[in-house]
């Protein structure tokens, strides 16, 4: 059986924006009898992207927003802190090969939206580039009458952040949940492919890096199979 690859999605956002709900809705899929968050598979899900199966692992440290250095810093420094370095956990069978970030705010809370900037800055600083697979999510869109962040504003801001995609979701009514994760996963696949190209270029210059030939083949094959993204422009999904 082929080695499976796990894409890690880091869900970030202030406390109380419903990000745990978002994650739970996504992971659970259909309603199940009972949900046990303490087991290994609580946060993994396989989703089909353009005809192939992708394994997503959701890293959501909901409930630990307090574990931050102080009031003024991004709420989840703790959760970003360890994750980027865990890009390459040397487990024998699964190799997480990328990271995507879901920045979640609640459309009913202006503050939760404002906090995203610091979160994004931190991510970019950690990653050292602004080409990070990322999606901005305005949650609780079912609470239209309590809206505090206008759709246009949120969209404009996300567009200004290197054309980051913006979605409005409702974890409660399971609106747009899968779309958000699918979009992010596509971005990760693309980033992955670009990385591959980069590595190929590197190899052309510096010679092989010790990568095994099998994985390279796998890598090229995957690249060939991938469809081109249809649109690269900004996207605002309103349902």
């Amino acid at each position: 059986m082929a080695q499976s690859q796990v894409y890690q999605v880091v869900v970030l956002g202030a406390g109380g924006v419903g990000k745990s709900c978002l994650t739970a809705q996504f992971v659970q899929g259909v309603w199940i009898e009972s949900y046990d968050p303490t087991i290994e598979d609580s946060y993994t899900k396989q989703i089909p992207i353009d005809g192939r199966q992708c394994m997503l692992e959701i890293l959501d440290t909901a409930g630990t927003e307090q574990f931050s250095s102080s009031e003024s810093t991004p709420a989840s420094c703790r959760s970003i802190g360890p994750t980027p370095t865990q890009t390459y956990q040397p487990t024998d069978t699964t190799t997480p090969i990328g990271h995507g970030f879901l920045l979640v705010f609640s459309i009913t809370s202006k503050n939760s939206f404002n906090e995203l900037k610091a979160l994004r800055d931190t991510i970019i600083q950690i990653k050292g580039t602004d080409q990070v697979p990322m999606v901005i999510v305005g949650n609780k869109c079912d609470l239209a009458e309590e809206r505090a962040v206008s759709r246009a504003h949120a969209f404009a801001v996300s567009h200004s952040w290197n054309k980051t995609h913006y979605y409005e979701t409702s974890a409660r009514s399971r609106l747009n949940i899968d779309q958000v994760f699918t979009d992010l996963c596509r971005q990760m696949l693309q980033a992955d492919a670009e990385q591959d190209r980069f590595m190929q270029a590197q190899e052309a210059v510096y010679g092989p890096l010790g990568g095994k030939s099998t994985s390279k083949r796998d890598l090229y094959g995957r690249h060939r199979r991938r469809r081109r993204r249809r649109d690269n422009g900004p996207r605002c999904v309103i349902l």
């Binding site: 990328g98 990653k127 050292g128 990568g211 994985s215």
Partner: peptide, 14 residues
């Protein structure tokens, strides 16, 4: 030093 590792590094100058 395996390919997944390099890919796993993700982005350039971490």
């Amino acid at each position: 030093e395996t390919a997944p590792f390099w890919r796993g590094l993700g982005f350039k100058d971490k």
